[in-house]
Simulated scan of single mutants.
Amino acid sequence: MNRTRAVVLVFVVLAAIGGVAVLTVDRPSVAGTESRFSGVNDSTTLVTTELRVTNPNPIPIELGNTTVTHSIRMNGIEMGTGSRDDIRAAPGTSTVNFTTAIDNRNIPTWWASHVERGERTRVVTGAAVDVPVFGTARVSENRTLTTDITGALNTSEPRPINASLPFVDDPVLVVERTSATWGNVTRARTPLDIALRVRNPTEIPIPVARIDYTLTMNGITVGNGTTGERTVLSPGSEQTITARAAIRNDELDDWWVSHIERDQRTDLGVSLTAVLELPGNRTVELPLDDLGTNTTIDTDVFDTGNGSDGSTSSIRLTR
């Protein structure tokens, strides 16, 4: 940031010489900011920001009528703003603390934008210090958050599924591989398509009537329902069955609270149940939870070093 020089004329009547003294004061500058989450409830997430102000003068400067404003934007969405009036800049570099409130109702809109952009979010934090006489100093920081949630759900490891049915040898199905992709996200829903490549190793047809699903984030149900069309797997055959699940975005503000409370950590679970049709108009529910369709999301939105090592799916920060 370029520093401009402001000249403040302080007229001091010197008894000895009756002269006038001239004092030159350099303009204070903004050295940077550091933000971190400091609290959360059902409606609001608090962010505490330390603004570093550098005063190059040997004396403190009382910045009366000074206004400091701060904003947080994610993919261009204004998540929250904060401000503080009247600050004092000691010689050298000092910090000014203030709080910005994020409205949790903005979380579903941000989430939709994150998925739409290929699980990428541009986080921009900006501060402006408006000082009478000196003018306005500004500083901003940009980071890119990336996740790979669907990638963490993909696997090519064959997994046998047992049914423990009479007169039928286990496993009744073998899931050869699983892949997940996002569908066309809207403000209300985030579709998640999970394709299961399934083989029937038995000598009898296996009719799959439907797939039931439940999506959870930190134990909070964010989506559930029934999906898929009736499919009959012939003996020895292999087919792809698609489970078209969806996250209800209006549940995500509740998830966000749990995410912040757990130090920006989320356990995402995808529970699938295949419903098999049997003779005599009977059905059997075959849990597919052994598919391992679970992952952990760790975030570090403000680059404070809170991310957890070894997570299946993580958010990475780059400047």
Rank of each mutant, 00 (worst) to 15 (best):
M1W: 06
N2V: 09
T4Y: 06
V7Y: 09
L9T: 12
V10P: 04
V10M: 11
L14D: 15
G18E: 11
G18H: 10
G18V: 13
G19Y: 07
A21P: 05
A21L: 15
T24E: 12
D26H: 08
D26S: 13
P28W: 00
S29K: 01
S29N: 02
E34C: 04
E34M: 06
G39Y: 02
T44M: 06
L46D: 14
L51M: 07
L51G: 00
L51F: 02
R52M: 07
R52D: 06
T54D: 07
N55K: 05
P56W: 01
N57H: 06
N57I: 03
P58E: 13
P58D: 13
I59F: 15
I61H: 00
E62H: 06
N65K: 14
T67F: 00
T67W: 02
V68G: 00
H70W: 09
S71K: 02
G80L: 02
S83P: 04
S83R: 07
R88M: 10
R88V: 09
A89T: 06
A90L: 15
S94G: 15
S94C: 14
T95D: 11
V96A: 03
N97C: 08
F98N: 13
A101L: 04
D103M: 08
N106I: 07
W111F: 14
S113W: 02
H114R: 12
E116D: 14
V123T: 09
V123P: 01
T125E: 12
T125D: 10
T125Q: 12
T125Y: 08
G126L: 07
G126F: 05
G126Y: 03
A128I: 04
A128E: 15
A137R: 06
R138F: 15
S140V: 08
S140W: 14
E141T: 08
D148M: 13
L153S: 04
N154Q: 15
P160W: 15
P160M: 10
A163Q: 14
F167H: 14
F167P: 10
D169A: 14
D170I: 09
V175K: 02
S179M: 14
A180F: 07
N184W: 03
N184E: 12
N184M: 09
A188I: 09
A188F: 05
P191R: 04
A195W: 07
L196Y: 04
L196E: 03
P205R: 05
P207R: 06
R210H: 07
L215V: 11
T216W: 03
G219P: 04
G219A: 05
V222K: 00
V222E: 01
G223K: 02
N224P: 03
G225D: 08
T226S: 12
E229A: 15
T231H: 05
Q239I: 11
Q239W: 10
R244E: 12
A246K: 05
E251S: 12
L252T: 09
D254L: 13
D254F: 11
D254I: 11
W255E: 00
W255P: 00
W255I: 03
W256S: 02
W256M: 04
I260V: 14
I260H: 06
R262I: 04
D263N: 15
R265A: 13
G269R: 11
A274Q: 03
V275G: 07
E277Y: 00
E277C: 05
L278I: 10
E285F: 06
L288F: 14
D289W: 00
D290E: 14
T295C: 09
T299D: 06
F302C: 09
D303G: 08
G307M: 05
T312V: 13
S313N: 14
R316K: 07
T318D: 09
R319G: 04
